[in-house]
Simulated assay, not measured.
Amino acid sequence: MLEGLAAALSLPALPWLCAGALVSGAVYGFAGFGAALVFMPISVALVPPAMAVAAFALTALIALVTVVPRAWAATDKPGLGQMLLGTMLGFPLGIWALRVWDGASIRLVVSVVVLATLAVLIAGWRMAPRPRPAARLLVGATTGLIGGATGVTGPVVILFNLGAGAPAQVTRANTLVFLTLCSGLLLGHLWLQGLLSPAAIWLGVVLMLPYALGNWIGQAIFDPAAESLYRRVAYGIIAVAALVGLPIWT
């Protein structure tokens, strides 16, 4: 197991991965979403996609300590459970795609998914009716499919929660808690399919510190009265990360 730690610490890209974890953690802390949207386009350009997905899924679990406790009270528990059930159904197929796709294809898919989600968010998409259980299950399954293949679990659920008509506090809490719990579920599926290597585990542990620091910084500077400003900043960071991750640079 210590060989895995040595492999993680010897990665030439480790400083950049730590920087990406810090920035993505800060975005998550103040915007309520966007950590994987920032981290994954950068990380899949630096390490094998399966390693990046597994490491970040583990890293993101630190949010159970840093951000979830504050958000839990405002969470829609029944709706959360329905979406998580759907996610469990989608993960196996998504992770199978992660195993068989080549790295350049995954990098392209990650960046395209991120940029498309960003465009829809900026356009202010909203969903008229309040969601039903069947819709939540479908959103969860789609999240599992995309998240399993790319490590980016946020796009569908972010759009869904923003368009569901709930108060901003509930929308933020639902997104935070769902994405964090998804990371735990994703780890289990990665292990079942043999993609949770010792090096990926240790990399995830190493990245927890800068990610947690980012979470605390993001929460400290968040002001509910200036939420729109912080979201615009988050959108800009996400856009840069997606462009950097495009497989046209290497």
Rank of each mutant, 00 (worst) to 15 (best):
L2Y: 11
A6D: 13
A6L: 15
A7S: 15
A7G: 13
L11Y: 11
A19R: 12
A19Y: 05
A21E: 05
V23T: 11
G25T: 07
A26M: 15
G34P: 04
A35C: 02
F39V: 03
F39W: 06
P41T: 02
I42Y: 03
S43Y: 04
V44N: 02
V47E: 04
P48C: 05
A52N: 03
A54W: 06
A57Y: 01
A57N: 08
L58M: 05
A60P: 00
L61K: 02
I62R: 02
R70L: 10
A71K: 09
W72F: 14
A74K: 08
D76H: 13
L84E: 04
L84W: 03
L84F: 00
L89H: 08
G94A: 08
I95G: 06
A97F: 14
R99T: 14
D102Y: 13
A104H: 14
S105R: 15
S105N: 13
L108M: 15
V110Y: 06
S111H: 13
V113M: 15
V113I: 12
V114G: 08
V114N: 09
L115D: 05
L118S: 06
L121M: 15
I122N: 00
G124C: 09
R126G: 02
M127E: 12
P131R: 10
P131G: 09
P133V: 06
A134S: 07
A134G: 11
R136I: 00
A141I: 03
L145H: 07
G147V: 00
G148F: 06
G148K: 04
T150S: 11
V152S: 05
G154D: 14
G154H: 00
G154E: 14
L159K: 03
F160D: 02
G163K: 11
G165V: 06
T175C: 04
F178A: 05
F178Q: 03
T180Q: 02
T180D: 01
L186E: 08
G188Q: 02
H189L: 03
S197W: 05
L203V: 10
G204K: 03
G204Q: 06
P210R: 10
P210V: 11
A212V: 09
A212G: 11
G214V: 10
W216C: 06
I217V: 15
G218R: 04
G218H: 05
Q219D: 10
E227W: 08
L229C: 11
L229K: 15
L229W: 12
Y230C: 02
V233L: 15
A234V: 10
Y235S: 09
V240A: 14
L246N: 12
I248K: 09
W249P: 07
